[in-house]
């Protein structure tokens, strides 16, 4: 281990920087979460775990958690089907495939913020694209409110998956291309149906990249706040307000810093548990 001193000299400054910029504020947020700290009065009094206890009795937390779970589950399902579908399509020897590849990667090039704005333009009840089409085809008389009480979470999930699926498709495609052609021929000769060919031949090869894609989709979607903030603003009412946005509202609109920190720490703990178990799963299967 002769290189250790040089290596430390090159890496340590960055670790210190990460500590100062990222980890120290985390500690401060934990300190806030066990204090009664707020915008009004600015009293900072030690309250122990009271803020954490409050999380479990707050009805808004229950609603927001349900929205988060629904959002993550829908995003993961959509990313799986769309990513897989796009990858299988791109694996076919179509003329103009490289052009198709460029078109399909476009949604990924949009930031989460730009994606959410695209969603607004697509769904707006006044001037949205979907409404324009429906009105032009005389399928409806007035602009339809897509982002309503029932469906706004689904629209969030669809646009999130629209944004995320291309990179998943590219991951899956790169493992699809490692499958030897002979395997398909052999399976065809054995008279295997399309479905069983997919299950027996294709899927074992792409399982790892599918898993990685879905792990990333889960982590990213669970921590996402920008989609809800920009596309629906959590509304109507709080019908599409995930737990991340609720914590944010508690911080900045209600000015209840201690309680907001407690919510965000519990969210962090849930995401950390999910992430760790995913990675254990990945390590075991590799």
């Amino acid at each position: 281990m002769a290189d250790t001193p040089t290596g430390l000299a090159l890496v340590l400054p960055l670790i210190i920087l990460e500590f100062v910029v990222a980890l120290y504020p985390m500690g401060y947020s934990f300190w806030l979460s066990i204090h009664n700290a707020g915008l009004i009065g600015g009293i900072q009094q030690y309250v122990g775990l009271a803020n954490y206890a409050k999380v479990f009795t707050d009805p808004f937390v229950v609603d927001a958690t349900m929205v988060s779970l629904r959002f993550v589950a829908e995003v993961v399902a959509l990313v799986f089907f769309i990513g897989m579908g796009l990858a299988l399509l791109l694996n076919e020897p179509l003329p103009g495939r490289s052009f198709l590849k460029v078109i399909i990667i476009i949604p990924w090039a949009l930031s989460e913020f730009a994606m959410a704005i695209a969603g607004r333009f697509f769904l707006d009840s006044g001037y949205g694209f979907l409404n324009s089409i429906l009105l032009d085809l005389h399928l409806e008389k007035y602009g339809f409110l897509f982002l309503d009480q029932q469906n706004s979470v689904e629209w969030m999930s669809i646009f999130y998956a629209w944004n995320f699926a291309p990179i998943g498709a590219f991951f899956i495609l790169s493992s699809l291309q490692t499958i030897p052609e002979d395997l398909y021929k052999a399976a065809k000769m054995d008279g295997a149906s399309i479905f069983s060919r997919f299950r027996k031949v294709t899927f074992p090869y792409v399982r790892y990249s599918v898993l990685i894609t879905l792990v990333l989709a889960t982590i990213q979607a669970a921590g996402s706040v920008v989609t809800a903030f920009t596309l629906t603003g959590g509304g109507p009412g709080n019908a599409s307000e995930p737990i991340t946005l609720y914590a944010f509202t508690v911080f900045f609109d209600e000015g209840n810093y201690g309680y907001g920190s407690a919510i965000s720490w519990l969210t962090l703990a849930c995401i950390a548990v999910a992430t760790t178990s995913y990675f254990l799963l990945l390590a075991r299967r590799k």
Binding site: T4, E18, M26, S29, L32, F251, Y257, T267
Partner: peptide, 25 residues
């Protein structure tokens, strides 16, 4: 390097934090 895994962990650890958890601090 001795302790390479620890260094990578320290460097990347903060990447797994959801943005909203670090926002207020």
């Amino acid at each position: 390097l001795r302790g390479r895994t620890a260094m990578v962990g320290l460097l990347l650890g903060s990447r797994t934090l959801p943005p909203v958890s670090v926002a207020l601090p």
